[in-house]
Amino acid sequence: MDKHLEQSQHTIVLIDGVCHMCQGLTKFIIKRDPAGVFQFASLQSDIGKDILRQGGLPEETVDTVVVVENGTYYTRSAAALRIVRRLTFPWRLLYGFIIVPRALRDVLYKWVAKNRYRWFGQDEECMIPTPEIRRRFL
């Protein structure tokens, strides 16, 4: 097992580090995760690529959030729902969308993912975490 996964007792969230929407969602999650359940890494980082390889996902994966929880990998809407179920109330109520068939949820997810750079913008490089949240990043 990858050393990053062995060392982490947390749920790992891999995000597109250059996407403004993804950066905003990371900050959103951190504010609503007072217990510090989630740790983050950029999909483009060496650590992110190592974790993707460990899960059998291509290193070039940047069109989805990836959640690693107890050794299981989740992508797209399943990953998003795994995140919200661990956030503070009322956000965890969104986990109720798990009853919607994954194929339908993923249609919406893929549409947003396809348009995220156009709608929200992107950076040339991955976000540098502030000192206050740096401990949450792998």
Rank of each mutant, 00 (worst) to 15 (best):
Y109F: 02
E132M: 10
I128Y: 02
V68E: 14
A41P: 02
A80M: 08
G96H: 04
Y117R: 13
A41C: 06
L87C: 05
L52V: 12
R76W: 03
I98T: 15
D106E: 00
I30F: 00
I128V: 14
S45E: 08
S45P: 08
R53Y: 01
I47T: 15
M127S: 03
K31Q: 15
F97N: 08
P101W: 11
A103T: 10
V65N: 15
L104V: 15
R86E: 12
E60F: 09
V62C: 04
D123M: 13
L43H: 01
Y117F: 07
T61Q: 11
C126H: 07
N115P: 08
I128L: 11
L93P: 00
R105H: 11
V100P: 09
Y109L: 05
F40L: 05
T130L: 13
W119S: 03
G24P: 01
F120Y: 06
V100K: 04
T88N: 10
T88Y: 02
T75P: 01
H20A: 04
D63C: 14
R82Q: 15
I128G: 00
V37W: 02
L104W: 15
K27C: 01
Y95Q: 11
Y73V: 14
L108D: 00
E69Q: 14
V66D: 07
I47A: 05
T26Q: 09
G71N: 10
A41M: 04
V65S: 13
A113T: 15
R85E: 08
G55C: 03
F89T: 07
D106C: 00
F97V: 14
Q39L: 07
Q44W: 11
R116A: 06
T88I: 14
A35T: 14
G55L: 09
V100N: 03
R118Y: 05
S77N: 04
L108F: 12
D33V: 07
L52C: 09
V84E: 07
V68H: 12
I98M: 09
I83H: 06
W119Y: 12
A41R: 12
E124T: 00
I99M: 01
